[in-house]
Simulated assay, not measured.
Amino acid sequence: MCMKKELLKVKDLKQYFPIKGGMLGRTVNHVKAVDGVTFDVYEGETVSIVGESGCGKSTTGRAILRLDEPTSGEVVFDGDDLLSLNKAQMRKKRKDLQIIFQDPYASINPRHTVRQILDEALEIQNVVPKSQRNDKIRELMETVGLGPHQIDRFPHEFSGGQRQRIGIARALSVDPKLIICDEAVSALDVSIQAQVINLLKKLQREFKLTYLFISHDLGVVRHISDRVIVMYLGRIVEIGDKTSVFDNPQHPYTKALLSAIPVPEPGKKKERVILKGDVPSPINPPEGCRFHTRCPFATDLCTTDTPELKAEDYMKEGHLAACHYMDEIESGKHKPKY
């Protein structure tokens, strides 16, 4: 049996942002945006990170690319420790690591034509000789479903979906191994979302790409993912293959998220899990299980002891969740408080 190659390994990644205060501007506290995240990504797969706004999913993606310098942890990509590389080495490594941002208009220089946008990436990474760049740009445009005759247009002359295709072409231009899709379709209309998702899947098959897909849209995540990571307040609360997480969720937070997905069949209803209270501040997150302030199953143990990611006997291999009472909740022995 052929084992997949581990392309990305993230271990105990932390991203704390300092809060300055006082006359001297000293650091008085930290926003713990990502607090000890560990996972891996294998070649050719799509791993999605999901969670509410502010859970740390986008910050995780930026920290992996060192767009924000991580506070601590390890990020090993294709055998190289990214956090040990200097700026020149990291720039070379970014050829294999690309990102597609949420807002294609904000992430593209409005003063440059598509030709200039794509040519800049090709020049920085020296992907093809200068004499061949125009041909490469035209090829990229056709690959993402745009016409070569559009290469001298400016971003404002394109629709939102077309601009996102330009962003995809820019990421694809340097022949990357891993692309981080940071809410890549959330700003698009639903019909355009489907087109872009299908394009991403087609490109993955054609160019053997690996995706780290960051999204809050669970419907899109279910369509595109191989594995799913659920984050809450800077930590992973559940991880597993797509079928396990969607059909057999174990963490109460995951169950609440999945219960909010609309049912496409008219007249069919499902039980909705309503969470009480607001998401706590990442400046002073709760002790123990960070979800205990909103969890209907929480006990005193949850307020003091941090649960580790683990699996029960009935769970599929590779499916892990961080909850003290998974088995009891599954068997019905542990009842919700409300």
Rank of each mutant, 00 (worst) to 15 (best):
M3I: 10
K4N: 14
E6S: 09
L8K: 05
L8N: 02
K11E: 06
L13N: 02
Y16I: 07
F17C: 01
K20A: 06
T27W: 04
H30G: 10
K32L: 07
V34D: 06
D35R: 05
G36E: 04
V37C: 09
T38F: 05
F39Y: 12
G44T: 10
S48F: 10
V50S: 12
S53H: 05
C55F: 07
G56I: 09
P70L: 05
T71D: 05
G73S: 12
E74L: 14
D81G: 13
S84I: 15
L85G: 14
Q89C: 05
Q102Y: 03
Y105S: 00
N109L: 01
R115E: 12
A121R: 08
V128C: 00
K130A: 13
R133D: 03
R133W: 04
N134Y: 10
D135R: 08
L140M: 08
M141D: 00
E142A: 13
P155R: 00
P155H: 09
H156P: 12
E157K: 05
F158L: 11
F158W: 13
S159I: 10
G161Y: 10
Q162G: 08
I166F: 07
I168K: 03
I168E: 04
L172P: 00
A187P: 03
L188E: 02
V190M: 06
Q193F: 01
V196S: 02
V196E: 01
I197A: 03
K201V: 04
K202W: 01
L203R: 00
L203F: 04
Q204I: 09
F207G: 00
F213E: 00
S225N: 01
V228C: 02
V228I: 14
I229P: 02
M231K: 02
G234D: 02
I239H: 07
K242M: 14
S244E: 01
F246E: 03
F246Y: 15
D247T: 12
P249Y: 06
Q250G: 13
H251A: 10
P252I: 10
L257D: 04
S259Y: 04
A260G: 07
V263P: 01
G267Q: 06
I274N: 15
I274M: 15
D278E: 15
V279M: 11
P282T: 10
C289P: 06
H292Y: 14
R294G: 11
C295Y: 06
A298Y: 14
C302N: 12
C302D: 08
D305A: 15
D305W: 10
P307D: 13
K310C: 13
D313F: 12
C323I: 08
D327V: 12
D327T: 14
D327N: 13
